[in-house]
Simulated assay, not measured.
Amino acid sequence: MSLNDLIKTAQSNTKRGIAAPNNNAVMSLEAIKPRDADTRPLNSAHVEALAESIAALGLIEPLAVDKQGRLLAGGHRLAAISQLKEIDLETFNQHFAAGVPVRVMEFDAQREPSRALEVEIAENEQRRDYTPAEVRAIADRLRKAGYKDGKGRPKAGEKALAPALQTIIGKSRRTVMSYLAGEEPPKNVQSCTFIKKALKELEQWEVAAPDSPGAQTLIKQLPKFKQLLRDAISESIKPN
């Protein structure tokens, strides 16, 4: 089966849902096995920026791995952690002496490659939306680590705050600056965040749904409901 076929299977495989993760696990960096292939090639500039932010803040979003320790999502974060270990072992040990935070999905990626892609796609499509208050708190921590506010290019040896926040939260510079200024996100962004949360909770219920006739009847209707939510997300993020 080709990679494109696997991606199509993963995107259409809504009936089974995504395995519930163990949210409290850590693994040594060496125990995390890289993927055989990435749907998103690594961007060296992004890896470097992530390594700098991880050095300042630690790992905010855990990696996703299967039950064998194979990476499912977080290739750039894993590369950034590896880079940090190479260039600054002391800082690496400060953050990861006990291990790298991971979310363990209870299945084997080699046995179920389409399910592995399902997790990767879900991670990319449902990236966490930070509130303005959370962004400002992260900004304060970055400032304490030496990141500077300001317009234009930073001076030699300085690290700019806004680009680091863009890397961490995955938002545009305009959105980052509005959050730092204390502005609330536009209503369409708030709606998108709410819908994403509803979709995620629906998928989690699907995994743990009881094996009763009523629940199974509802599960048959879930693909339609979930597609409506995805359509609503797409509509809410269209530019005005």
Rank of each mutant, 00 (worst) to 15 (best):
L222D: 03
S2Y: 06
E90D: 10
N4Q: 01
P113C: 14
R35D: 05
K159Y: 10
L218N: 03
A55F: 00
R136W: 00
G152V: 04
L72C: 04
L89Y: 05
S172H: 09
E118R: 11
M1R: 11
G17K: 07
E52C: 09
I54A: 07
R35V: 08
A56R: 03
D88H: 03
E52T: 11
Q126N: 14
G69N: 02
A156M: 12
N23T: 09
G182S: 12
F225I: 12
W205F: 00
I233N: 04
D129S: 14
I60E: 03
L222S: 06
H76F: 09
P113H: 13
S236Y: 05
Y130H: 13
Q166F: 05
S212Q: 06
A73I: 05
R70K: 13
A232P: 04
T167H: 00
R103C: 06
N43V: 07
Y179M: 09
L78W: 02
K187L: 11
N23L: 14
I7V: 15
A116T: 02
N24Y: 04
E90H: 02
H95R: 09
A198F: 08
R136T: 13
D211S: 02
G58H: 08
K33C: 06
D66C: 13
L202F: 05
K159I: 15
I87Q: 14
L161H: 07
A122N: 12
A20T: 14
E112D: 12
R173C: 01
K197E: 09
S12A: 15
N43F: 04
V102L: 05
S44C: 02
E61G: 02
Q166I: 09
Q110L: 14
P132V: 06
E90Q: 14
K67Y: 03
E61N: 08
Q126W: 09
K200Q: 12
K151W: 05
R143M: 15
T217R: 14
N24W: 06
G146N: 08
L50V: 09
P186W: 03
Y147L: 13
I233V: 15
A31F: 05
T131E: 08
E48C: 07
A80W: 06
R16L: 10
A156W: 10
E158C: 11
N4Y: 00
R103I: 01
T14F: 11
A133M: 11
S114Q: 08
V102Q: 00
P41Q: 06
A37W: 10
I87V: 15
D66I: 03
A209K: 10
R230G: 07
L218G: 03
R115L: 07
L142I: 12
R143L: 08
K151R: 13
N240C: 03
N24C: 08
K151D: 13
S191E: 03
T175Q: 12
A198D: 05
K226I: 02
V104M: 07
L218E: 10
S191N: 09
A156R: 15
I219S: 09
E90C: 05
S44F: 06
A37Q: 15
F96H: 11
G146P: 12
L6H: 06
N43T: 04
V135P: 02
Q68W: 04
T91G: 00
A198K: 08
E203D: 00
D108P: 08
A160S: 15
R173Q: 14
L3A: 00
S178L: 04
A51R: 13
T167L: 08
Q190G: 02
V189H: 03
